Amino acid sequence: MPVRMVETSSPSEVSGSTTGNTMPQPCTLLSVGQAFSGTQNVSSLQKDEAWRVNVRIQGYDHDRGYLCGTMEALNVPMADTPVVTFWEGEIVDTKNYTFYTGKWGATREDDIKHWTKFPSFPPLLPKVEPDGGKSLDLSNYPYIFMRWKEQHFVNVGTDCGLTIAGFYYVCFSCSDGSINGFYYDPNSSPFQKLELKSISVGRLGFSFSTYELQ
């Protein structure tokens, strides 16, 4: 939810086979109720700024490659309260979704430019370029790639000074639950980085405010 303004790892195996299970395996750190906390960098030529961000997963359907949740930005300069948005996500599983977005104004060149910013992606690139990675076997890959698209504001109006026109390219680490992402919107500062860590709500004493989603 930016202001509108003008991990190196190799896969255990990257296979071209389409037999068997080629989708990413379910990950316990990517499940309903799981919470994440971190920052989003919204730096531009005019300023250097990072917002504190909390994310909670509200829904997850592995077979459909779908998940959804809420994102809360806590220290947005022009907002009197934390700004909460509801987002829906696509899991790049080569069955339901590939690495090519095909919407939201993103070209294949935009896709490759953003995915390659994740150190875990380059080993996949040769098989992604022809068709978005339809032949990739991601079942044992230690990272899950996703797109998150904010759908609406939960607790503020559209006149809050923020935009949700774009979407996030996301890379999730199955080993520690960390999330890295880059926001894409041609009308916002490029490559705004999202960095989140998985948190234990009970152990760390962290909790989100309660919001009713409709």
Results as ranks from 00 to 15, higher is better:
residue 28 T to Q: 04
residue 28 T to R: 04
residue 71 M to E: 11
residue 24 P to M: 14
residue 36 F to C: 00
residue 34 Q to S: 02
residue 67 L to I: 02
residue 55 V to T: 05
residue 56 R to C: 00
residue 73 A to I: 08
residue 29 L to K: 03
residue 62 H to P: 03
residue 65 G to T: 09
residue 26 P to F: 00
residue 38 G to E: 10
residue 73 A to K: 05
residue 46 Q to V: 06
residue 13 E to C: 15
residue 9 S to E: 07
residue 35 A to C: 11
residue 38 G to Q: 12
residue 51 W to D: 09
residue 29 L to R: 04
residue 58 Q to S: 01
residue 10 S to D: 09
residue 59 G to S: 14
residue 44 S to Q: 08
residue 64 R to C: 11
residue 48 D to C: 07
residue 27 C to E: 10
residue 28 T to D: 10
residue 52 R to M: 09
residue 67 L to M: 11
residue 37 S to N: 11
residue 50 A to F: 11
residue 9 S to L: 09
residue 25 Q to M: 12
residue 10 S to W: 10
residue 46 Q to C: 13
residue 73 A to L: 15
residue 66 Y to F: 13
residue 56 R to K: 03
residue 76 V to N: 05
residue 53 V to C: 11
residue 72 E to C: 14
residue 34 Q to M: 00
residue 44 S to R: 03
residue 66 Y to D: 05
residue 53 V to Q: 07
residue 69 G to E: 00
residue 27 C to T: 08
residue 42 V to P: 08
residue 52 R to H: 14
residue 16 G to K: 13
residue 69 G to N: 00
residue 47 K to L: 05
residue 16 G to A: 04
residue 70 T to L: 14
residue 39 T to I: 14
residue 75 N to M: 04
residue 60 Y to D: 01
residue 30 L to T: 07
residue 15 S to T: 14
residue 47 K to A: 14
residue 77 P to Y: 01
residue 77 P to A: 12
residue 65 G to E: 07
residue 69 G to I: 00
residue 64 R to L: 12
residue 65 G to I: 06
residue 57 I to F: 01
residue 37 S to D: 12
residue 15 S to E: 09
residue 53 V to L: 15
residue 43 S to N: 14
residue 59 G to W: 09
residue 17 S to D: 12
residue 22 T to R: 14
residue 66 Y to V: 06
residue 73 A to E: 11
residue 12 S to G: 05
residue 65 G to F: 10
residue 68 C to F: 03
residue 56 R to Y: 00
residue 53 V to D: 03
residue 59 G to Q: 12
residue 39 T to P: 04
residue 10 S to G: 07
residue 65 G to R: 07
residue 30 L to H: 04
residue 20 G to Y: 13
residue 70 T to F: 05
residue 23 M to G: 06
residue 20 G to L: 06
residue 31 S to M: 06
residue 63 D to I: 09
residue 76 V to D: 06
residue 24 P to D: 14
residue 44 S to Y: 10
residue 57 I to R: 01
residue 73 A to Y: 15
residue 37 S to G: 06
residue 33 G to Y: 02
residue 24 P to S: 12
residue 57 I to T: 01
residue 73 A to T: 08
residue 62 H to N: 06
residue 9 S to P: 05
residue 32 V to D: 01
residue 43 S to Y: 08
residue 43 S to T: 12
residue 35 A to M: 04
residue 30 L to R: 02
residue 42 V to K: 04
residue 19 T to R: 14
residue 37 S to C: 13
residue 51 W to I: 05
residue 50 A to R: 12
residue 72 E to Q: 13
residue 12 S to R: 13
residue 60 Y to F: 06
residue 61 D to A: 08
residue 11 P to V: 07
residue 67 L to R: 03
residue 77 P to V: 03
residue 72 E to K: 10
residue 43 S to K: 08
residue 15 S to Q: 05
residue 15 S to H: 13
residue 76 V to T: 08
residue 74 L to Y: 02
residue 29 L to F: 09
residue 28 T to E: 14
residue 30 L to N: 03
residue 14 V to R: 07
residue 44 S to N: 11
residue 26 P to I: 00
residue 29 L to I: 02
residue 49 E to P: 04
residue 76 V to I: 15
residue 34 Q to H: 02
residue 15 S to G: 08
residue 32 V to Q: 02
residue 72 E to A: 04
residue 69 G to K: 00
residue 40 Q to W: 13
residue 55 V to N: 02
residue 21 N to G: 03
residue 34 Q to I: 01
residue 66 Y to G: 05
residue 53 V to W: 09
residue 43 S to R: 07
residue 60 Y to N: 02
residue 26 P to C: 01
residue 34 Q to T: 00
residue 76 V to Q: 09
